[in-house]
Design a binder for these strands. Structure first.
Lengths: 245, 245
DNA sequence: ACAAAAGTGTTCGATATACACCCATGA
DNA sequence: TCATGGGTGTATATCGAACACTTTTGT
């Protein structure tokens, strides 16, 4: 028995990554060639997304779809918004694309948006057919369907989360320096912070703990490394909420 | 031509109201009688919700559905989360109910949650067949399907919104006193505030403006009345956010 | 006159902001 | 020895929390 794909329901995933400098997003190339394969009719990008199965949990669908497109595993997803206007597929490119490949698409597709945070942008992405690449979030101009809008909403949600919960550490390596952490906050929130004041604040977060290890091989004073302790966070979370930087 | 209802997609609306004392929610009675109509098989409550039409915008569906059930008009809705697990309809009552009335329901129904805020709980609700009534939010115990979970999530979202945007005024009459406003914040956030400190804070909100009018017919010193000015809010909002991005 | 809620300021500790120099390392 | 980012403290302004009495009205 084959599972039935729902023609009117999809999941789109915004995969964020941080390369110690910029916030990036994983996009899939959407390239349509002419029948003879010689010329390109159009080429643009979309988020990682697809339709869900009839008997598939919504949250599991996000995991499966991203794995299908990128080979990435063990990602954690957070749902942020659902998009269901009637004009989601308005651009001519979208229409052409659907005519070519969209045998499972009904007139209006409702899509549930999820995002995930990856600790680096050098992961081994298995390109299964379509090209998948990282793009700086603030340089993304147009995307397929309403994916630009979806990306904006994901970012908005991420900014809120970052200031209320310790989600930023998912975008950092296990061991990180305070400068990296500061750069991350600056990249996502689009602000500049004073180094001393930033560190003063972090020093109050008991769950950001220094380890007996320093940076190596850098042409300057090596930085102290820190880790995020979920255990300490859980213990102290009731005492206070101080993520506002 | 008749419009086609989508069997796997619905909208559930959490209608909040404030009676100057408690936060309330509008619920629809779900009563199943035996065939002879003499005994009640079960009776419980659900949120206002229903399936959406194939050619219907998601946001418009919320408006239509609540109007169909209550006659209420001109409500503003805010989408907060989408529920799509496979076990949403697990309780025996849900199964029985669907067997009786659920000709349009597929195995897993994905539902998009919206909430709306009403300035009072004395509105003229037109009961179209099923009983609709207000219940204190913190006394709601069990609800049909996963509606309790949906209600919790809506509340959580409302609490966040209340602390970041001036949405609370939608739950107050046009002209309100500062004590009413304080009670509202206390009811939603589940906290107690100091009267003087609360007023100090409100006095910094330039968009909460006193009018030339006082409370009447109360057996104590009549309170100054205030209104919320969306215009002033919009003007000052940009000033406050101007260092972001 | 009494009951009931309205209205009003000050003090104190905590937190936010602004700001400049020396340090350790690899090249 | 130089370039690079790492690391540190203090002073001032602002904000939040605690706290008690007088005022105005209807009954």
């Amino acid at each position: 028995m084959t599972r039935k794909l729902l023609t009117n329901l999809s999941v789109d995933c915004v995969i964020f990554g941080f390369d110690m400098d910029q916030l990036k997003v994983l996009l899939v190339e959407r390239k349509l060639k002419s029948d003879d394969g010689k010329s390109i009719i159009f080429s643009d990008h979309s988020l990682t997304g697809y339709h869900i199965y009839e008997d598939e949990d919504l949250d599991s669908a996000a995991i499966r779809i991203v794995n299908d497109l990128t080979g990435l595993e063990n990602l954690k997803f957070e749902q942020f918004y659902t998009f269901g206007s009637l004009d989601r597929i308005a651009h001519p490119n979208d229409q052409i694309w659907i005519e070519q490949f969209g045998d499972v698409i009904s007139s209006r597709v409702l899509t549930v948006g999820y995002y995930s945070l990856l600790p680096n942008t050098n992961m081994n992405i298995i390109q299964k057919g379509r090209k998948v690449n990282w793009f700086p979030v603030d340089q993304v101009k147009e995307l397929a369907y309403d994916h630009k809008e979806i990306l904006e909403k994901a970012l908005e949600h991420l900014r809120y989360k970052l200031q209320n919960e310790p989600v930023g550490f998912n975008l950092l390596p296990e061991k990180f320096t305070l400068s990296q952490m500061q750069k991350l906050y600056e990249a996502i929130l689009g602000a500049k912070y004073d180094k001393r004041n930033f560190r003063k604040k972090v020093s109050q977060m008991s769950y950001v703990v220094p380890i007996k290890e320093k940076q190596q091989g850098v042409a300057h004073k090596p930085a102290q490394l820190y880790i995020f302790s979920p255990e300490v966070y859980e213990k102290t979370r009731k005492e206070r909420n101080h993520f506002f930087i």
